[in-house]
Amino acid sequence: MSGAGDREAVFPTRQSLGVMKAKLKGAETGHSLLKRKSEALTKRFREITRRIDEAKRKMGRVMQIASLSLAEVTYAVGGNIGYQIQESAKSARFRIRARQENVSGVLLPAFEAYLTEGNNDFAMTGLGKGGQQVQRCRETYARAVEALVELASLQTAFVILDEVIKVVNRRVNAIEHVIIPRTENTIKYINSELDELDREEFYRLKKVASKKQRDTAATDAEVKSKKDRLAALEEETGSNGPADLLAAEEDEDVIF
């Protein structure tokens, strides 16, 4: 990847380099956590789909048995009881309740069937004849509905898990393919800019050093030439060398 790739708009300073490095580390941790979550959910999801498949098949069988027992009722009662039943239905005896189950932080609802006590809308159904068949039919259908409720809770879990897995996978992919590369790019960019600055600084220092050296050399040369000139001048004026104090001519007497 080139330095011109996608990166965040930051100033290339050491501080933002530190921030970016922390961010990269965070993104990597988050990625691995989310990945694990997604795997756990997918495992659960596969289990649920398998159970749905089984439950659907079971439902087919159970419903077949139930409709057979209804046919028995129709035969025994000797007429269609559908209308009577539809009219006498008042209050549900068979109700459901929702529970929650926690799978890796996802709340999955599960339905639970229960029977309310003490209301029976169909006390009169089959009173004349076929009461036994009606009773049996009710039990069969109650079992069928229980199977249906179980299937419904599986299906609800399926729908919710499907949604959640999609979201989690989207996050995993976003971190893997967008955030991490971009942060890495930014780090690369900051590093290259900092190197560039380092090189510039180094070059500048070298330049300054060489200038200084040149200046010193020039001053040295000047001093040296001055000294030389002075020496030459001295040589010219007094070639007798330094005056000997003792050998000097007599001083005049000092009178106080």
């Binding site: 209804l70 039943i85 239905a89 008042k90 005896r93 929702a98 259908y141 109650a142 509905v145």
Partner: peptide, 27 residues
């Protein structure tokens, strides 16, 4: 979903009759 406690049926007469017999009917 706390207060969702009923089932509903859309179906032919036999299915509805059977399920009502099981006791899911509510008015």
């Amino acid at each position: 979903y706390r207060d969702r406690q009923f089932l509903a049926v859309i179906g032919d007469e036999d299915s509805v009759t059977g399920l009502l017999l099981a006791g899911i009917g509510h008015v």
